[in-house]
Amino acid sequence: MPPLVLVLVLGSAVMHATWNAMLRSGQDRLWSISLMCLVAAAVSAPFLFILPAPAPASWPYAVGSAGLQIGYCLFLIRAYRDGQLGQVYPIARGSAPMLVALGAAVFAGEQLSPQALSGLALVCVGIMGLSLGRDRADIRSIAAAVVTGVFIAGYMVTDGVGVRLSGRPTSYVVWMTFIQGAPMPLVYLAIRRCFPPIRADRETFKALGGGLIGLVSYGVVVWAMSATDMAKVSGLRETSILFAAILGAIFLKERFTIRRAVCAIVISGGAILLAG
């Protein structure tokens, strides 16, 4: 993996963990994620008229990814309803890399080296290990986290193929982000029977910041998948679990045990192998 891609994807992992910590700490997570998505769509909107459109072959993938990401958002907030960041985040993120690798092999014809496969296995084992123990989440939160991981794998493989067909990675990110974020107020309306209110308070500013961070974070990942293997990008990005565990301990007062520290080291070792 080129050094620039490596650094940017690691930065994306930090940003992803950050906006998830912001979401988990929110008082109304459906409202928070709806506003985050709406902010990302609003920021993307002007670029729809500035940048050339992506190739038509990529349009179905952008629409498909948007639908999968809406499902991801809904199951993510269900997992966070009762589960802590350090409990459900590892399950959701840990189940994704193997599924991405399988999807990339089936749909994009990618072949991973033995070293990369070993790294991918370490990342997945380490992340899943973080979700075990007596302090694990309840079964419904775990189930929601697993389904979230399926959605993650689905939209990452979809975007990995779509961005390569687009001919213009930046344009693809802009269109996909807008298509995904713009309908979120309607999703909120369908669930709450009203549009998400906009208030001038701390929660609103936190959601605004989370939306911007999320946009940059995933934009980097989609761009990276246009330049290198999807499975490598997915596996490396899941080092975000280490940053999420640290953020959860510092800002959400969650436990950071020896077991979690060991699993974080395993994840880091797997990420190094993946990036090799």
Rank of each mutant, 00 (worst) to 15 (best):
G11C: 03
V146G: 08
Y72I: 01
A137N: 07
M176Y: 04
P185R: 10
P169R: 06
L247S: 01
G64S: 12
A245P: 01
T228W: 08
W223K: 14
S58T: 01
P56K: 00
V43L: 15
L68V: 02
A17N: 06
S113D: 04
Q115N: 11
R164E: 00
A137S: 04
T18Q: 02
K253P: 04
V7P: 12
L165P: 07
F205K: 12
A144F: 09
V147H: 01
G86C: 11
G162I: 05
V266Q: 01
S171T: 06
S240R: 03
A66R: 03
S166W: 05
L102W: 05
Q84D: 15
M225L: 09
I91M: 05
V88F: 11
Y172T: 11
V163H: 01
A271E: 04
P196M: 04
E203K: 08
P183T: 06
L132W: 11
D229S: 05
L30D: 10
W175I: 10
L68N: 04
D159E: 03
G11Y: 13
A145P: 10
G11M: 11
L252Q: 07
A207E: 13
V43H: 14
G167T: 02
I77V: 15
L48W: 07
S44C: 14
S58R: 11
A249I: 02
L68K: 02
V174L: 10
F151V: 09
M22P: 07
A45V: 15
L208M: 15
A249F: 11
L38R: 14
Y172R: 04
T177Y: 07
L51E: 10
A143V: 11
M225G: 08
V14I: 14
S234Q: 03
V216A: 15
E110Y: 01
A101N: 13
V9F: 10
A53R: 14
V63M: 10
R29N: 09
C124W: 06
G83Y: 15
F256S: 05
N20A: 06
F195Q: 08
A244L: 02
V150K: 01
A182S: 06
A42H: 13
S217V: 12
L23G: 07
A105I: 03
V221I: 09
P185G: 14
M98Y: 04
G133N: 06
S217F: 13
S226R: 15
G248Q: 02
L212K: 12
L35C: 10
G235R: 00
L48R: 12
M128W: 14
G11P: 06
S58L: 09
V233I: 08
W59V: 13
I241T: 08
L189V: 12
L112P: 07
V222Q: 07
